[in-house]
Simulated scan of single mutants.
Amino acid sequence: MRIDVLTLFPEMFDGVFSSSILGKARDKGIVSLNTVNFREYSNNKHNTVDDYPYGGGGGMVLKPEPIFAAVEDLPVHRTSRSSDDEPTAAVKPRVILMCPQGETFTQSKAEELSAEQHLVFICGHYEGYDERIRQYLVTDELSVGDYVLTGGELPAMVVIDSVVRLLPGVLGNEMSAVTDSFSTGLLEYPHYTRPVKFRDWEVPEILLSGHHENVKNWRLQQSLYRTLERRPDLLEGRELSKKEQAWLEEWKRQKQE
């Protein structure tokens, strides 16, 4: 996968792209992470990338010319046939605008994007974007929540981290991404490790039993309980099995006692 980030502050990504999981994924060649300062594509002598909005109002608006020029100047990403390593046709990128008005980012969206071969993120500043960027360049608009930040860099980092960790070979244990919170539509079950007893608090006995089916059922129960207690909205519209319904009814009964 190739990921390009258009930003006025490429230095913000230096530590993120070279550390932890993202850094290891790049070192392994699983993902190519690149930043582009779109100020370099300004077409005026002052290198400005923003201007006053038509019709008046406060704030500045990002101009379309530098953004379009930066995206159109990106190297064409191609894949190779495994048999003869001959290049295939160019890959059309998903161009993602980080914006408070966008679709709320979710785990399912991360899974969708992880299947792509080329992602381009546009990180804006100032009051907003020239609308023609949305209309004629962008394929997706994403928001990481109902709040406003000074720019799109931090949201882009969040989305990139979430997407890259899903790529094959990135995580040491391939089951880690499968059992994460939200991957199954539920919050993740509790985890324990050594020691068995810490300050009189013991690991649940069922996890020490070695009975895989019982452990599996316990984990599903705990995921259901935790989701109902902390994020009941995630259960809305979810089809529960009779066994799951019985677990939840028993849990509610015990909570009332």
Rank of each mutant, 00 (worst) to 15 (best):
Leu8Phe: 13
Lys24Ile: 00
Ile30Gln: 00
Asn34Trp: 10
Phe38Thr: 00
Tyr41Met: 01
Asn43Trp: 01
Asn43Gln: 10
Asn43Cys: 01
Asn44His: 07
His46Phe: 14
Val49Ala: 15
Gly56His: 11
Met60Thr: 08
Val61Asn: 13
Leu62Trp: 08
Ala70Trp: 10
His77Lys: 11
Arg78Ala: 01
Thr79Gln: 14
Ser82Gln: 05
Ser83Val: 12
Ser83Cys: 02
Asp85Met: 11
Val91Leu: 12
Val91Phe: 10
Lys92Arg: 14
Val95Gln: 04
Ile96Met: 08
Leu97Met: 11
Cys99Leu: 04
Glu103Asp: 09
Thr106Leu: 02
Gln107Glu: 11
Ala110Cys: 02
Glu111Gln: 14
Glu111Phe: 02
Glu112Asp: 09
Leu113Gln: 04
Ala115Asn: 14
Gln117Val: 00
Gln117Asp: 15
Ile122Thr: 08
Cys123Lys: 07
His125Asn: 12
Asp130Thr: 14
Arg132Lys: 09
Ile133Lys: 03
Ile133Asp: 06
Arg134Ser: 14
Gln135Val: 00
Leu137Tyr: 05
Glu141Ile: 05
Glu141Tyr: 04
Val148Glu: 03
Thr150Asp: 11
Gly151Thr: 04
Gly151Tyr: 09
Gly151Cys: 04
Gly152Met: 04
Glu153Cys: 01
Ala156Pro: 05
Met157Ala: 14
Val159Tyr: 11
Val159Pro: 09
Asp161Leu: 05
Asp161Ser: 07
Val163Ser: 09
Leu166His: 09
Leu166Thr: 07
Ser176Arg: 11
Ser176Cys: 05
Ala177Met: 04
Ala177Asp: 13
Asp180Arg: 03
Ser181Met: 01
Phe182His: 12
Leu187Phe: 06
His191Thr: 12
His191Tyr: 11
Tyr192Glu: 02
Phe198Arg: 13
Glu202Trp: 01
Val203Cys: 04
Pro204Met: 04
Glu205Phe: 02
Glu205Met: 07
Leu208Tyr: 09
Gly210Ile: 00
Gly210Asp: 06
Asn214Thr: 04
Asn217Glu: 13
Leu220Gln: 15
Gln221Cys: 13
Gln222Glu: 15
Tyr225Leu: 03
Thr227Lys: 00
Thr227Val: 03
Glu229His: 12
Glu229Arg: 14
Leu234Met: 14
Ser241Met: 06
Glu244Leu: 04
Ala246Arg: 15
Glu249Phe: 03
Glu250Ile: 03
Lys255Leu: 15
Gln256Pro: 03
